[in-house]
Nucleic acid binder design. Structure first.
Length: 446
RNA sequence: GUGGCCGUAGCUCAGUUGGUUAGAGCGCCAGGUUGUGGCCCUGGAGGUCGGGGGUUCAAGUCCCCUCGGUCACCCCA
């Protein structure tokens, strides 16, 4: 049957973010940018598409994300490309390509694509905020990065979340530990869940992450990586936990925390929100990836980073009732019942002077325009009728605060506006959880 | 990818054992008030009943398929 109309609907698992919800996004990104830039991270914008090998080699052929969930495509030139399923590999690829001076610290905000069945807090296109720091293996950097995520969450007003950390060791100690776990599992094969019963040998550490009762029981008293780290990894981890305690970032050791990407080494961590359903409660995660740069063809360079899921973070905020939406409102709404030319000229002039100004179109009635002005949330209405037009004046009518309306000369409207706008209107974002820098109206005018 | 539940105006929903022109609230537009928003009153616009096929004299109501949403598993942000 022929499709006669375009399917006006976002593809499965994708979604639109429109006003006023998008105001939260703006604020979230601005707040994140302010915090990470204060810590020396600079914005990195890299292509949405990459050679598939960037992800295959970086994330790992065996991971679910690469094996089953990547959006892959071939362009007209026969190149094998993939839509990024995560944010780290592309940034590291850019690092390898450009070799900026070390240490190099970058942040990003990006869509990420994974072909999975959507459900609450899980999308085929979701969005991530993240940072990557390359060029130093100093454990103090691990502390900084974890503290950055923790501080960002707290800046939104979130309290019901927890940082769980673990160490994945390195090339020196991971094989030995994996062998220990494998030996442990071999004696308990019959307890494993159906999924892992047949494939625990390929990657024994994955079993630690399984939430099925059987696997949980089988691994309950499994050897812990923290007890089997090599001296260097153990010292690194100790420095990280010391640092977290010193700077006051609460954390919990998570012996079973095994992240899904192959590139992680040493410190790994996840932030989980307690008010979200257990299935999708991860609001952020990351870790150290000291071998990734080499994997992508660069010189041996340590690195660490994290990604935060925007949609899930917002869900967590909703669950706690924090980070409310408070979109910017117009300072003034021009009501013109003389044809619209006055509204046109006045609103454009006032915007040029730094005010947020709205107006109505299509020559609607004064009542309709004032109604629109009220709904817009504008602090004042600037009314131009035949009388004002003749007198060269504008009626300034407060809509939110008290006080009487008054007429002022056209060339004094800006001045009158300044004094007529209540503080609540003049400060952009003062009631939005404090995540962003606050832009004061007065500063915009200078 | 597997399974459960759901799909009626922009939104939230009602639609009696299948039976005349499919309803409400909110929102939107207009009027009541030929210069004044919020409250109130009146009226109006707006619906392929997700889509397709089938059963029937008759389908929003039943059946099949399909698309979409949602929840769980898997995995992750």
């Amino acid at each position: 049957m022929p499709d006669e109309t375009v399917a006006a609907r976002a593809p499965t698992g994708t979604h639109d973010v429109l006003w006023p919800e998008s105001a939260r996004w703006e604020h979230l990104v601005a707040g994140f940018a302010a915090r990470v830039e204060a810590a020396g991270f600079g914005l990195a914008v890299t292509p949405l598409i990459e050679d598939v090998r960037v992800f295959r080699r970086g994330i790992g052929e065996g991971s679910d994300v690469v094996g089953k969930e990547m959006y892959e495509l071939e362009d007209r030139g026969g190149r094998r490309l993939a839509l990024r399923p995560e944010g780290t590999a592309p940034v590291v690829r850019a690092f390898v390509q450009h070799r900026p001076p070390l240490p190099w610290k970058a942040w990003y905000v990006t869509p990420a694509f994974r072909y999975e069945r959507p459900q609450a807090g899980r999308y085929r296109q979701h969005h991530q905020l993240g940072v990557e720091a390359l060029g130093t293996g100093d454990p103090d950097l691990d502390v900084e990065v974890i503290a950055l995520a923790d501080g960002f969450f707290r800046s939104l007003g979130l309290v019901g979340f927890e940082a769980r950390i673990n160490s994945m060791g390195d090339a020196a100690c991971r094989p030995g530990y994996a062998a220990l776990v494998a030996a442990h599992l071999r004696a308990r094969q019959d307890q494993l869940c159906p999924e892992h019963a047949g494939r625990w040998e390929a990657n024994p550490l994955r079993v630690l992450d399984c939430k099925k009762p059987g696997c949980v029981a089988a691994t309950e008293d499994a050897p812990r990586f923290l007890d089997h780290l090599c001296d260097a990894c153990a010292a690194h981890f100790a420095r990280v936990t010391d640092g977290l305690r010193s700077v006051g970032v609460p954390y919990r050791l998570a012996h079973r925390l095994v992240r899904g990407f192959d590139y992680y080494t040493r410190t790994t961590f996840e932030f989980s929100a307690e008010h979200l359903d257990a299935a999708q409660n991860g609001i952020g995660g990351g870790g150290r990836y000291d071998g990734l740069v080499e994997q992508l063809g660069g010189p041996a360079t340590p690195g660490i980073g994290f990604g935060i899921g925007v949609e899930r973070l917002l869900l967590a905020c909703d669950a706690e009732g924090v980070f409310p939406v408070d979109p910017p409102r117009p300072h003034a709404f021009v009501v013109d019942v003389t044809g619209g030319a006055e509204a046109r000229d006045l609103s454009i002039a006032l915007r040029g002077a730094g005010f947020r100004v709205e107006r109505a179109f299509d020559g609607r009635s004064m009542k309709a325009q004032l109604k629109a002005a009220d709904r817009s949330g504008a602090a004042v209405a600037l009314i131009v009728g035949p009388d004002e037009l003749a007198a060269g004046t504008v009626t300034v009518r407060p809509l939110r605060a008290g006080g009487d309306q008054r007429q002022v000369a056209r060339d004094q409207v800006a001045e009158a506006l300044r004094s007529a706008i209540p503080a609540a209107h003049a400060v952009d974002g003062s009631r939005r959880g404090g995540a962003g820098e606050e832009r004061h109206h007065d500063e915009e005018l200078t």
